[in-house]
Computed example of a mutant assay.
Amino acid sequence: MGLYVVQVVGGQERHAADLIRKVAGASVEDSFIPELEVMKKIHGEWVYKREKLFTGYVFVKTHEPAVVKKALMALPMFARMIGTGNDAFVPLSREEVAWLNAHTDARTHVLEMSEGIIEGDEVLITSGPLRGQEANIVKIDRHKRLAWMDVHMFGRTKTIRVGLEIVTKR
């Protein structure tokens, strides 16, 4: 069973995931959009929100990628399976799948908020899925409670936004 990535128009991910499940039927075990948990200030109060981790992509777990590709042609929207272009479908690598499984909740596919502290010039993640990933953090915005980190996904290094609350700075 491989985990494949389908590129869709940004903003249509949820609709595309539902249609893929419906059109491809039993050949698709799961079709989902990984999300991240962030905090937003709304009316002066911090609330948890979910946003897309990879805008414009739907993840499809299947053992029949050719059936899924054929089903994509029946969709009333742009949707293409990421591959080499010559009808060769490339699933996510073991490392990419391991990263997703280690950092997102298996049931909800959400990368939850992490907490950390800053000691001098170093960031130390104290809790959450980013614990132990300090070396991959590129930038932190303490006021928006966000961090940017480098991950290897889709066969290349990609900088993604993640939720990180810095509780103290020493």
Rank of each mutant, 00 (worst) to 15 (best):
M1D: 11
G2H: 11
L3W: 10
L3Q: 10
Q7W: 05
Q7H: 13
Q12G: 00
R14D: 15
R14G: 09
I20V: 10
R21L: 14
V23Y: 03
A24W: 03
A24G: 10
G25Y: 10
A26E: 11
A26H: 06
S27M: 01
D30W: 10
D30E: 15
D30Q: 14
S31F: 07
F32C: 02
F32W: 10
F32S: 01
E35S: 14
L36P: 01
E37N: 03
E37Q: 15
V38P: 00
H43T: 01
H43E: 12
H43W: 04
E45S: 13
E45C: 04
V47C: 00
E51I: 02
E51D: 12
K52P: 04
K52H: 09
L53C: 06
F54G: 05
F54R: 06
F54V: 11
T55F: 12
T55E: 13
G56P: 07
Y57M: 02
V58Q: 02
F59C: 01
V60C: 03
K61Y: 13
T62C: 00
P65E: 09
P65I: 07
A66P: 00
A66W: 12
A66H: 15
V68N: 11
K69T: 02
K70D: 14
L72V: 02
L72W: 07
M73A: 11
L75I: 08
F78G: 10
R80N: 08
I82C: 02
G83I: 06
G85L: 04
D87G: 08
D87Y: 13
D87A: 12
D87P: 00
A88E: 15
A88G: 01
F89Y: 15
F89C: 01
V90Q: 13
V90S: 08
V90A: 06
P91V: 02
P91E: 06
L92Q: 12
L92A: 09
S93N: 05
R94E: 14
V97G: 04
W99F: 15
L100V: 05
N101W: 03
N101S: 08
H103F: 08
D105M: 10
A106V: 08
H109K: 14
M113A: 02
M113P: 01
E115C: 05
G116V: 03
E119N: 11
E122Y: 07
L124Q: 11
L124H: 14
L124W: 11
L124S: 12
L124G: 01
I125L: 08
I125Y: 13
I125H: 12
S127R: 14
G128S: 06
L130Y: 06
G132R: 06
G132Y: 07
G132W: 07
Q133V: 00
E134A: 01
E134H: 05
A135H: 13
I140K: 07
I140W: 08
I140H: 06
D141Y: 11
R142K: 15
H143E: 15
H143C: 00
K144I: 00
R145M: 12
L146R: 15
L146V: 14
A147D: 09
M149R: 14
V151A: 13
F154E: 03
G155Q: 07
T157H: 12
K158G: 01
K158D: 10
I160S: 14
R161G: 00
R161C: 12
V162T: 07
V162Y: 10
V162D: 06
G163P: 03
L164D: 05
V167E: 10
